[in-house]
């Protein structure tokens, strides 16, 4: 269980997160949606402990950070480090003595190549593989499907299902609603730094329709497309 109490975050005068109170029970898959700049990534970074913030983030784990795998929106890598060496670094960081990465390379990544030369999708897959090898209890996946090919999208969906079946807690953000509605137990809508709606599976359709209406409305009529 991750419990967020009174979480607020500001950058200078701009308040990005406003007094957020939310709970993520263990073993669930939770989707976070919101417009660009709504504060999703900041929210994730606060949970991970990568940002200073007001309020508390509580967990029943002894040290949440040490059992948390965080896939960032745009993972970046040190220069002149191969994929294999990156995975080794992530394992060493968690005292995991594992280097049989070729066998576990489900995305068929060229692990002998420098990670910085990977494409966007390959970088994302490498970063995801890294946090999976760490055997974390909680996963934060910030736009895991972004820039990834269809084949890998299917694999990532199956990975999320597998994590859920193993009792892991997964938080995902995505701009593609279907990727969330297919995987999540609850979807939370973040708007202007606040969670304004939480929907279970039976409300997903309604949430999607509402968002479509809000985003598109009659605006396409202005384009005069014929």
């Amino acid at each position: 269980m991750i419990s967020i109490k009174g979480l607020s975050k500001s950058y200078g005068n701009k308040q990005v997160l406003k007094d957020i109170n939310l709970e993520f029970p263990k073993g669930g898959v939770y989707g976070i949606i919101g417009e660009n700049g709504s504060g999703k990534s900041t929210f994730f970074r606060c949970i991970a402990g990568l940002e200073n913030h007001e309020g508390a983030i509580l967990s029943d784990l002894p040290n949440l950070k040490n059992e948390l795998g965080f896939l960032q929106t745009n993972p970046d890598f040190m220069s002149r480090i191969t994929g294999w060496e990156y995975l080794k670094l992530l394992c060493i960081a968690r005292d995991i003595n594992d280097d049989d990465f070729e066998r576990q390379n489900i995305f068929d990544l060229p692990l002998a190549q420098y990670a910085e030369t990977y494409s966007t999708g390959m970088k994302k897959k490498l970063a995801l593989l890294g946090i999976l090898l760490q055997h974390n209890e909680v996963f934060i996946l910030d736009e895991p499907f972004n820039g990834v090919d269809i084949h890998s999208n299917i694999i990532i969906t199956e990975i999320i299902r597998k994590l859920k079946s193993c009792g892991k807690t997964v938080l995902i953000s995505s701009h593609i609603f279907s990727t969330l509605s297919d995987n999540c137990d609850v979807i939370h809508l973040l708007k202007d730094g606040k969670f304004v709606k939480s929907a279970g599976p039976d409300e997903f359709e309604q949430l999607n329709a509402g968002m479509r209406e809000f985003a598109v409305g009659n605006s396409l009529d202005r384009l005069n497309i014929r």
Binding site: M78, S79, I81, E85, K88, I92, D99
Partner: peptide, 13 residues
């Protein structure tokens, strides 16, 4: 190889 990352990247540079 088994001691990432400073010496790997540094030696290559």
């Amino acid at each position: 190889r088994k001691f990432p990352f400073e010496f790997i990247a540094g030696t290559r540079k």
